[in-house]
């Protein structure tokens, strides 16, 4: 099953490689990984998406918790949560394709953030599935480049993953 795991960790050099190294050393699956500092500069927030049986996911969480730099961890998939991923996609925008790309961006409520006479850069935020849908809605031949952030997420409700 797909799990999205949120981790608060010490914002120290090498902390990220401990997480990445753990996954490769133990043969765990890692689909996406995003990381950035939080409002507290001593902490980084890391969100990763992984897949595995319940036993494997349990091990992944235990092994992550065992890392000295990991302060707190939450499996967002265990409760109600929201997920967002951002995508920047560069498409060809020439002749009739130009109209079509604009229309598609509007339908998906995406923003066009860069324009040349032959291309658009479209920004789209949403669930990973919505981003997938957008890609498949566009003629493959018109796609120049796709950049995805990987999902990040937060639990619903008043409680937060904080210290």
């Amino acid at each position: 099953m797909r799990h999205i795991i949120s981790i608060l960790m010490e914002n120290e050099a090498g902390a990220l490689s401990r997480v990445a190294g753990l996954f490769s050393a133990r043969g765990y699956n890692i689909e996406t990984l995003t990381v950035a500092p939080t409002e507290d500069p001593s902490l980084s927030r890391l969100t990763l998406v992984t897949r595995g049986s319940d036993d494997i996911i349990e091990q992944i969480k235990k092994q992550l918790n065992k890392l000295i730099d990991v302060v707190k961890l939450l499996d967002l998939s265990e409760g109600p949560h929201v997920e967002r991923e951002m995508m920047l996609i560069k498409v060809k925008a020439e002749k009739t394709g130009r109209e079509e790309a604009k229309r598609m961006a509007d339908i998906f409520r995406a923003n066009i953030i860069d324009v040349t006479d032959v291309s658009y850069v479209i920004e789209l935020t949403g669930s990973s599935r919505k981003l997938d849908a957008f890609i498949s809605a566009i003629d493959e031949a018109n796609i120049v480049e796709v950049v995805r952030s990987g999902p990040t997420g937060i639990a619903r409700g008043a409680k937060g993953l904080t210290l």
Binding site: D55, E58, Q59, K62, Q63, N65, K66
Partner: peptide, 11 residues
């Protein structure tokens, strides 16, 4: 002492 040892190989 190590939670990750629990149910790692044997349930």
């Amino acid at each position: 002492i190590d939670p990750s040892s629990i149910s790692k190989n044997v349930r």
